[in-house]
Design a protein around this nucleic acid. Structure first.
Lengths: 347, 347
DNA sequence: GTGAAAGCGCTAACAT
DNA sequence: ATGTTAGCGCTTTCAC
C-alpha cells in the first residue's frame, strides 16, 4: 500500500496537467475528454479517462469559472429565513437546481434593503449566474432588486413587481378559492361565509373573486353580508366566526382564508357548541402543518410552495441558458386537501 | 448624460487593469490598495481609490479565489430542509457567517448518503473553505462525512460522531432538564412525572439524568414509577398522561420532553377534567411555535437553535482561519421559557 | 485528431 | 514606494 497522506484519494489537488502527463497527451486533449468535446479518438478518450480515474482527478471549478465566466451558481435571497412558507419554496428551488449541477447561495435579508444590497454585492462579485428573490410573507408587491443586476437573470418568488422586468412566481389564489368554494357548494352548503385576511392584500381580493366565481357557477347565492376581512391569524378567525354565527341567519359553511383563521374559527364554533362539520363546514387555506392535527382535521386549500420553488428554479435556469428574461407572472395552481372538517369527502 | 447600456453602473466587467490605467499605476499597486496592503503612499492610495470608484470597480472574486485558493464560501448540508429545527439553526449560521463576508451553499441531502456525497463532490470542486453538516432530527450519532474532505474543516450541527475528528454542536439536554425540573420543584411540586421520548436517543437519557439531578438538589424524591418513555409526538403524550393520572397516587407535575408530547398530555388532562396548572403543572421541551398558543400557554425549555447555528459558524470560521480542527463536543445551554402552564412565574 | 499558446482577473515574489 | 513578471487551472482558437 502506498503511503497515505491526509486526504485519502490523492491529496493535494491534481490538475489537468498531471492527467495529461500520465496519459501522454496534452492538457488540451484532457480538457476535451473531460467535457465530452468531439474530435478525440476513442482510443485517447479511454487512455485519458483511465488516467483521470487513476489520479482521482476532479476539475477545479474555480479555474473553469474564471475561464468560462459561468459559475453554475445561483443566489437565493429571502426576507424571512424563519418563516413558515420560505422553507418549502427553498426546498423546491434546491431540488430542481441541484439536480442540474447548480449550487445555491443562501442569503437572509431580513426584509432590509441595505442587507439585500450587501448580499447582492457579494453575489455579483462571486459571479452568480442568476438570482432568486423570495419573500416569506403573503405574496405582495415589491420594487426592483436593491442593486441593479446588469444582465444577471432574476426571478421573484412569492412576490411580484411593477418596477422591474422580472419573472414572478405566485400561487393561483383565485383558482384556489374556486376549488375551496366549489367543494363547499358541491357538498350542498348554501350559505357560505368568508373570513378573509386584510383587504390590502391582492390575495384577499383574488380569493374573494374566486369564491364568487365558484358560487355563481354552482348556482349558490353569494351573500356579501357573510364576508369578513380581518387579520391572517387565529384571534381574527375567532372573532369573525363568533360574529357570523350569531347572525339571525347564520352560515352553514365558513371559508377561512388561512389555516390560522380556521383554527380560531374552530375554537369559536366549539365554544358556541356548533358541530363541525354537521352544523357548519369549515375550510382553511395554506395547508399548514397543524391543519391535520385539528379536531376534526382541517380540509384546506394547499399553497403549492414546493412546486412554486421548482418553477422558479426552472425558469431561472432556462433564462440562464437561453439568455431570455421577460417580465411575466406565473400563477401556480393550488390543491384541495380534503380532510374531515367539511363532512363527506369529495364527490 | 452618457449613453447608458444594459447595466447601470459600468456594465461589462471592469478589471484591475482598467483601474490601473486610469490611475496611471500598475495593476499590482491597485491590488495593494484594494487589499489595504502596506507600502503604498497615501497619495497613490487616493488616486487609485478615486479611479476605482469612478469606474465602479469590484474585484472579481473568482479570479481572486483561483489565485489565493480561498473562496470565502461554506457548504451547508442538511438532511431535512423541511424540518422544524433546521431553519433556526441555518439562520444562526447564515447570520454570523455572512457578517464575516462568507457565503454559504445550501444543500439538501434528504438524509441520503448518496446525495450527501454528490453534494460534497461539487462543494469540493467549488473549493469551499469549510462545511457544516446539519441534522434536522433530534440530535443523534452519525458517521463520517459521505466523502473524505481532506483538510477542509467540518462541523456537525445537532448531531455528533465517534468516527471522525470533527467539532460537534448540540444542545445541553442535561442542563435543560435541570432547568425545567428545578422550576417545577421550586414551585413546590413534589410528585414530578416525566414523559420522555424513545429510549435510544441520547437526549432522552441526558434529560432524565437532568431531572434526577435537579430533584436531588432540591430535596424532592425521584419516583421511577412516574417515568414514561414513548414517542416524541402528541399521541404518546396523551396516552402517557392518561395513564399517569389514573395511578393511585397521581403526579402533581408533568415534565414532557417535547412540546408535542406536552400538547398531547394537555389534551388528556383536559379530557380528564384535571386543571392546569392548579392540579397539575405541565412543562414541555423545544419551545416550538405552537407552545405559546396552547391554553394555558406552555412553559417550556427552549432549544438554543439559533445560538447553536451561530456557534457552529464561528467554530468553522475559526478553524478555517487557524487551520485547527480538533474533535470536540459543544453543548449549548437551553433556556427556560416561563409561561402559564406551571402556575406562578419563576420565583 | 492532437498540441502549442494565449489568456480569464487577480496576487505575490522579486526587482528597481 | 512602485512596477515587472509569473502563474493559479482551466478552455479555446488555431496550427499542424
Amino acid at each position: 500500500m502506498p503511503p497515505k497522506d491526509k486526504a485519502s484519494p490523492s491529496s493535494a489537488s491534481v490538475t489537468i496537467r498531471d492527467v495529461a502527463r500520465l496519459a501522454g497527451v496534452s492538457p488540451a486533449t484532457v480538457s476535451k475528454v473531460m467535457n465530452n468535446a468531439p474530435y478525440v479518438s476513442e482510443e485517447t478518450r479511454q487512455t485519458v479517462r483511465a488516467a483521470a480515474d487513476k489520479l482521482n482527478f476532479r476539475p477545479n471549478s474555480i479555474a473553469r469559472s474564471l475561464k468560462m465566466s459561468r459559475t453554475a451558481t445561483l443566489g437565493l435571497i429571502t426576507d424571512d429565513l424563519e418563516g413558515v412558507f420560505t422553507m418549502s419554496m427553498m426546498r423546491g428551488v434546491e431540488e430542481v437546481v441541484s439536480a442540474q449541477g447548480f449550487s445555491v447561495f443562501l442569503c437572509n435579508s431580513y426584509g432590509d434593503a441595505a442587507r439585500e444590497r450587501a448580499h447582492l454585492e457579494v453575489l455579483i462579485d462571486k459571479k452568480v449566474d442568476g438570482v432568486i428573490l423570495i419573500s416569506g410573507y403573503r405574496v405582495r408587491q415589491r420594487g426592483a432588486p436593491a442593486l441593479p443586476l446588469g444582465d444577471i437573470p432574476v426571478v421573484y418568488l412569492y412576490q411580484y413587481t411593477d418596477e422591474a422586468a422580472v419573472r414572478c412566481v405566485v400561487p393561483d389564489d383565485f383558482g384556489g378559492a374556486v376549488l375551496g368554494a366549489g367543494h363547499l357548494a358541491g357538498l350542498g352548503r348554501r350559505r357560505i361565509a368568508v373570513i378573509n385576511g386584510p383587504a390590502h392584500y391582492e390575495a384577499t381580493r383574488h380569493r374573494l373573486e374566486g369564491v364568487q366565481h365558484a358560487l355563481a357557477r354552482a348556482g349558490v347565492p353569494f351573500d356579501a353580508a357573510l364576508v369578513r376581512a380581518g387579520k391572517w391569524y387565529e384571534s381574527s378567525g375567532y372573532a369573525a366566526a363568533s360574529d357570523l354565527m350569531t347572525l339571525p341567519a347564520p352560515p352553514d359553511a365558513l371559508f377561512c382564508m388561512s389555516d390560522s383563521i380556521a383554527v380560531g374559527a374552530l375554537g369559536a364554533l366549539h365554544d358556541l357548541g356548533v358541530r363541525v362539520p354537521q352544523d357548519v363546514a369549515l375550510i382553511g387555506f395554506d395547508n399548514r402543518s397543524f391543519a391535520v392535527h385539528q379536531r376534526p382535521p382541517l380540509t384546506t386549500v394547499a399553497l403549492p410552495l414546493v412546486q412554486m420553488g421548482r418553477l422558479a428554479g426552472d425558469l431561472l435556469l432556462k433564462d440562464i441558458r437561453e439568455g431570455g428574461s421577460a417580465a411575466e407572472l406565473y400563477r401556480v395552481p393550488c390543491e384541495l386537501v380534503v380532510r374531515q372538517s367539511c363532512g363527506a369527502s369529495r364527490a
